[in-house]
Amino acid sequence: MPPTPSDELARQVTGLFAAINRRYAQESEAAAGTHELTPLQAKALLAAEQPVPMRRIAEHLHAEPSNVTAIIDRLEARGLVERRPDPGDRRVKLVAATPAGRTVVTDLRTRMPFAGSPLAPLSEDQRESLRELLQLILEG
């Protein structure tokens, strides 16, 4: 039985999701690789450009905090981030990029124009519509 127009449209949309993901991953991997970082390490470093709690980095990476600890440990060993107490709550540790880390962040942003802002071609209304449509897909 030949595919229906709806099946063909679904295939095209799914293919576009895959192409976007592939482009994002390739660009991220190439940029991170220039600094001998994994894509997750680069994403964590980008998230720590300003001091941020480890919990927020975990949310940004969609990862468990225990996994993020190992990532931050590696970045810290390379001198790209530092841990410091949160002045508002001494129990919380903030992760912040060091001057060397901020230099790497600047270079990563330059090397990742698509991954850094994949929705740039869309207007605010289009972004909101896309978010709503993607939420419908996930909820369905």
Rank of each mutant, 00 (worst) to 15 (best):
P87Q: 12
R23A: 12
P113M: 00
L40C: 13
L75C: 07
P53Y: 12
A63G: 01
G33R: 09
R90E: 08
A48T: 04
V105D: 09
V95P: 03
E36D: 06
T98F: 05
T38C: 14
S129Q: 13
I72G: 03
I57Q: 10
T34E: 08
L61E: 13
I57T: 15
L80F: 15
P2Q: 04
Q12R: 12
E139A: 10
T34C: 04
K93T: 04
L108R: 09
V95R: 09
R127A: 09
R11Y: 12
T69K: 15
A63K: 10
A32Y: 03
L75F: 04
P121N: 06
G15F: 00
A30I: 15
S117T: 04
T98R: 02
L108Y: 01
A58L: 02
R109G: 01
T106Y: 00
S66K: 11
P99K: 05
R109K: 10
V52F: 15
A96N: 14
L80V: 13
V105H: 09
Q12T: 11
R22W: 05
R56M: 07
P85H: 14
A115N: 01
R11L: 09
E139C: 06
H60V: 10
A48C: 15
L122Y: 07
T110E: 04
R131K: 08
L61T: 11
S129K: 12
A70W: 07
V68A: 12
T110S: 13
L80Q: 03
A100E: 10
V81E: 02
A48V: 09
L122E: 01
E82T: 10
L136R: 05
I20L: 07
P51I: 04
E36Y: 06
R127Q: 05
V104G: 03
